[in-house]
């Protein structure tokens, strides 16, 4: 059983894993009780599991825990709370950009990284930037509106 140290949402975290290849997704959800990142495919195809590692959006379902040792991980919980949502979360809430909400984590985390890189993207840039994130409920219009709300601010 090896031990891995990294930072999660600003705090130090130490986790044990019997398998260095264990994806970060399961470490976050099961060892650290952070359920914001969702299992959607485990194949890197949907984006539901997106988290930030050193500010970059990554698919936690395909990121081995050994790869994040010493890095800084940010999850949806690390952005804000219902009472004090971060600006992207607040935009999603204002636009009611969620139906079942199973994709919402990935949408917000991907948008977060996109906006950090390009603070004022065009609608086309947002569409391209979010192309790897799937939403089955068809909430696309509102998700785009939410991201554009931040982009235009």
């Amino acid at each position: 059983m090896a031990t891995y140290k990294f930072r999660v949402n600003g705090n130090p975290a130490t986790v044990d894993s019997w398998d260095p290849e264990q994806p970060l997704l399961y470490v976050l959800r099961n060892s650290l009780g952070l359920h914001g990142a969702k299992f959607g495919c485990g194949l890197g195809q949907c984006g539901a599991c997106t988290v930030l590692v050193d500010g970059k959006a990554v698919r936690s379902c395909l990121t081995p825990v050994k790869q994040v040792a010493g890095r800084a991980v940010t999850t949806l919980e690390g952005l804000g709370t219902p009472e004090k949502p971060d600006v992207v979360q607040a935009a999603f809430i204002a636009e009611q950009a969620s139906q079942c909400g199973y994709c919402t984590n990935g949408m917000i985390m991907t948008a977060k990284a996109l906006l950090a890189q390009t603070p004022h993207p065009t609608l086309e840039q947002v569409k391209t930037g979010m192309a790897g994130n799937l939403c089955r409920c068809g909430t696309h219009t509102r998700i785009l509106n939410a991201v554009m709300r931040v982009a235009k601010a």
Binding site: K38, L76, P82, Q89, T104
Partner: peptide, 19 residues
């Protein structure tokens, strides 16, 4: 009316069956 579960869904607080 704003759906009250949306803030939870946007912040990781909404507990899905999967969670």
């Amino acid at each position: 009316v704003l759906r009250t579960e949306v803030p939870g869904k946007c912040t990781g607080k909404h507990v899905y069956l999967q969670d």
